[in-house]
């Protein structure tokens, strides 16, 4: 079943990660930044699963599970922050919150 060369899987993971990174850098809407973060985390999980499939070991999928739970926790806090930002500044522009209060 794993007749696919590992390089192609890792290449795809790298491409997806790069796209997510571009999204984080280019977009200023904070919802899009969060989505791009999800893409990057997903690409990291893909790299782990690809490596796990190469040696037919379960460790890759275990690491993927940890990444999954981390993504869930991150997105819960992130979206709460998005709602907070919107209520405070009435905008989703990430640059609106670039100044600190202290």
């Amino acid at each position: 079943m794993s007749s696919i060369p590992m390089e192609y899987g890792l290449l795809l993971a790298g491409a997806l990660f790069a796209l997510g990174l571009i999204g984080v850098i280019v977009r200023r809407n904070i919802v899009f930044v969060l989505m791009s973060l999800e893409i990057m985390l997903n690409a990291a999980g893909l790299a782990f699963v690809t490596a796990g499939a190469k040696w037919a070991q379960a460790d890759g999928q275990v690491m993927y599970l940890f990444i999954l739970s981390m993504a869930a926790a991150e997105v819960a806090v992130g979206l709460a922050l998005v709602l907070k930002l919107y209520h405070q500044f009435r905008t989703l522009d990430a640059d609106a919150a670039s100044r600190m209060h202290g």
């Binding site: 079943m1 794993s2 696919i4 795809l12 999980g45 893909l46 699963v49 690809t50 499939a53 993504a71």
Partner: peptide
């Protein structure tokens, strides 16, 4: 789908359900 082709059906199911 890629996870499934790589031989990781559990990860594929979790990807659909959780992500």
């Amino acid at each position: 789908v890629i996870f499934f082709t790589l031989g990781a059906p559990f990860a594929a199911a979790l990807e659909v359900i959780t992500y």
